[in-house]
Design a protein around this nucleic acid. Structure first.
Lengths: 334, 334
DNA sequence: GTGAAAGCGCTAACAG
DNA sequence: CTGTTAGCGCTTTCAC
């Protein structure tokens, strides 16, 4: 088993010092052409690859970015994270992923681990978290950016969209169509500012229209949870005509239960989603939802984080969302 | 900006040597209770966290596992990777992810990068790849395991299921119900052994029943691709009664187009999927598909890889799939 | 322009 | 049981 060649092996073969080899690799222009050629030849011949741990130890940079994601299972994060990753990969950084399972303590732990591992920067999802996490990031001076939510002037820059305003616009559209009794199936709001903001947005739209308060049921992502939530909602608000959901997965589940109950969508009940996942166009009827620029967001978050890692000032970025009007929302039957 | 505390800082504060602190952290039982207590107190007080680069440099182990995934966008990998990650996290390993975008060259490059970064082990998806990748893994003696496919006696152990047999069983079921003209919408087969095996399985089932050959159209994952493929299929095989699809996403797309064309499913056309994603139960009618034990597979792959990293012999593991009979497949109208 | 030498923070013999 | 002492492979002054 061939031992991995080291800088010294290359230096010996090229007849120079390790310092020179190091320079050739990191600041080629400082080394004179001829020496460099000899060194590079040796590097090739030996198939030398620098040892990242050793380099990181002294350089205090790992070319690694960490990300703490609630869960990768959720399609909601997949597209954005992939875009984030693509940018990192193009810039020769690698992605170290940790998942928190929506647990604040687990997230804090993951951030600690990522810092200990020398992540050059960290991606966080959403705003809700123990302030201690931000303190840690600050004292260790590890740059971070928040995505999937937006807040100007927060402890770290954010690259995201306005969850509340987006949902408010969607519900306002429902109101415009004549809906008066609307209810909501939300994802768990505890420790989840995105979910909470969406509820707030829906609430605000109803208030502004002088309509009865929003009735909310929470559901997790398990199959059938949204369906059961719909049952409860129908029970609490028999005359509901519009059920807005915190995301597309929830909406698809609710719609399915509606069908099972013999309720036609949007004939007897309108249902809306949020995110515009591929799923939104695959269900019947296609979901009216809010389109979130996942890809743009992931890329922008990566650029912002990389800029911060390079010591550049980074500003928060608010991305626009747009209403995606399809078939699951229609005017209520009078 | 508080400098990160080092082993030495802890040692000084606890009045012991750095070696003792190191032992407390790595082999606690070797240190006497009292000393250990003092050390741990210092660790707490200083908020000490070991520097992984330094540790990795000497230990020649990074506690990091790499994974090269075609794309995280695809829900097909999400659940399995999350399960994989959960096991790693529980065992105090971290996941370094790279994506290949289904490009063999990009995958090879990613493996090289992962090795240079000292990944202790690498997860690969599927069997199809340049043999040079396996050679590299072998000469660098970095353990790897393949998931999402199965092959006994391959260059590296695999943890997966039998794509061909699963699809064959599904098509056999269709044949049993009376289908005689069946066609398939497959994902791209180039460089994708899973897709190819599924086509082979369907082909074999038809042959065994003495039915006409399978007509196949390929589609990528873009929205609408499966729908367009259905159009082409309908054109080529006007009397088709069953369209089997390489995965659930494709099936959902095909079903949607069928609806748009006024074809009832399964009344006039049966459609089946593969994977049993959450999506399968959210579309109307619910998809008949093949259930793949994503979670079990991800966990088993992680365990196998970790065992290999620990120097234990690892065997390939064939996981069972099961037919998931729902509403999108029914006997054809005669 | 290049080499010598001093570590980065940690682990692992080897003594005591 | 605990301290001393070498490095791990690389980068980076500081001389020449």
């Amino acid at each position: 088993m061939a031992k991995t060649p080291t800088l010294e092996d290359v230096a010996t073969r090229a007849g120079v010092s390790t310092a020179t080899v190091s320079r050739c690799l990191n600041q080629p222009d400082v080394v004179v052409e001829e020496t460099r050629a000899r060194v590079m030849e040796a590097v090739e011949a030996l198939g030398y690859a620098p040892n990242f741990s050793a380099r990181a130890l002294v350089a205090k940079r790992t070319q690694t970015i960490g990300a703490v994601i609630p869960t990768m299972e959720n399609a909601i994060f997949a597209e954005g994270i992939q875009a984030f990753q693509d940018v990192l990969q193009a810039e020769r950084y690698m992605l170290l992923v940790a998942s928190s399972g929506y647990d604040p303590a687990a997230e804090a732990e993951a951030v600690r681990t990522l810092i200990a591992r020398g992540a050059d920067g960290i991606l966080l999802i959403g705003l809700d978290r123990d302030p201690a996490v931000y303190d840690l990031l600050a004292t260790q001076s590890v740059p971070a950016v928040v995505a999937w939510a937006f807040a100007s002037g927060g402890p770290v820059p954010s690259v995201g969209f306005d969850n509340a305003a987006s949902m408010r616009a969607l519900v306002a559209q429902g109101v415009r169509l004549g809906h008066k009794r609307v209810a909501m199936i939300s994802g768990r709001t505890e420790g989840n500012d995105r979910a909470r903001a969406r509820v707030e947005g829906a609430t605000a739209a109803l208030r502004a229209a002088g309509l009865p308060d929003l009735v909310v049921e929470e559901a997790d992502y398990a199959t059938g949870a949204a369906a059961d939530a719909l049952d409860r909602l129908l029970d609490r608000v028999p005359d509901v005509t519009l059920v807005v959901c915190g995301n597309d997965v929830l909406a698809a589940g609710a719609m399915q239960r509606a069908h099972a109950l013999g309720l036609s969508v949007p004939g007897q009940l309108s249902v809306t989603g949020f995110d515009d996942l591929g799923l939104a166009r695959l269900v019947q009827p296609a979901l009216t939802t809010v389109r979130v620029p996942h890809k743009t967001m992931g890329e922008a978050a990566a650029r912002a984080l990389l800029a911060a890692v390079d010591g550049q000032a980074t500003e928060s970025l608010l991305l626009p969302t747009e209403l995606c009007l399809r078939d699951s929302l229609a005017a209520p039957k009078s």
